[in-house]
Simulated scan of single mutants.
Amino acid sequence: MNNKDIEKKIHEEFYWFHKHPELSYAEVNTTKRIKKNLQEAAIDVLDLPLQTGLVAQIGSGKPPIAAIRCDIDALPIQEETDLAYKSQTEGKMHACGHDFHISTILGAAYILKQKEKNLKGTIRIIFQPAEEAPGGALDVLKTGVLDDVQVIFGLHSSPLFPVGVVGIREGAVTAAVDRFEINFIGKGTHAAHPQNGIDPIVAASTFISSLQTVVSRNADPFATDLISITHFQSGNTWNVIPEKAYLEGTTRTLQPEDRKLVRQRVYDLAENIAKAYGAKAEIIWHAGPPATNNDAAWTAFAREQAPKAGLRVEPSPYSLGGEDFAFYQEKIKGAFVQIGTGKSYSNHNPHFQVDPAALLPAAEYMSQLAFNALARIGK
Rank of each mutant, 00 (worst) to 15 (best):
A309D: 09
G235P: 13
T104C: 14
F325A: 09
V240E: 08
K113S: 09
F14G: 12
V45K: 09
M1D: 04
I111M: 15
I126T: 06
T30Q: 08
L369R: 12
L46M: 14
E323K: 11
A95I: 02
S234M: 06
A370W: 08
F325R: 06
F100R: 01
A191L: 01
K62W: 01
D44K: 15
T206L: 11
Q78P: 02
G154Q: 06
L311M: 04
E257M: 00
S346R: 06
E27W: 07
L360D: 10
D355L: 09
F371P: 03
F161L: 13
T31Q: 09
Y318P: 03
P307Q: 08
T251W: 08
P63Y: 08
V214D: 04
E304I: 00
P159G: 14
A176G: 15
Y277F: 15
D225C: 15
R252H: 12
R259A: 13
G188F: 05
V145C: 15
P63D: 06
I105H: 10
D199H: 09
I339E: 11
I185G: 01
V55R: 08
L75D: 07
F161H: 07
T189G: 03
E243W: 01
A74D: 10
G136D: 00
A306G: 08
D355A: 12
K117Q: 14
I332K: 08
V151Q: 11
M93W: 05
G61H: 01
D258C: 08
T341V: 15
I227M: 06
Q368K: 13
A300N: 12
S87G: 05
K275Q: 07
E131K: 07
G321M: 11
I123G: 02
A223F: 11
S234K: 03
K260P: 02
V354K: 03
L38W: 07
Y267A: 12
F127S: 11
G378F: 03
R217I: 07
R124T: 11
N239A: 14
L106K: 08
K19H: 12
L46N: 06
G249A: 06
L247V: 07
I339R: 13
G61A: 04
E7A: 12
A373K: 04
T81G: 13
T143H: 10
G53H: 01
A326S: 15
F161I: 02
G340S: 04
L23N: 06
I105F: 02
G59I: 05
T104G: 08
I377Y: 04
A291R: 01
K32Q: 13
E131N: 07
S319R: 12
A302P: 09
Q368A: 13
P63R: 05
I339F: 13
P256V: 13
A109H: 06
K8V: 01
G144R: 12
I241F: 00
G322T: 03
G154H: 05
E79G: 12
Q353I: 14
A223R: 06
E79S: 10
G278A: 10
S234N: 04
R312Q: 14
S205H: 00
K86S: 15
K275Y: 05
V145D: 10
A358E: 05
P356V: 08
G235K: 12
I201W: 05
G91R: 10
K19N: 12
T224K: 15
D324I: 09
G107E: 04
G197T: 03
H351W: 10
D47W: 02
W238S: 13
Q195R: 00
E12W: 00
A130F: 04
V354I: 13
I377S: 04
W238M: 10
V240D: 04
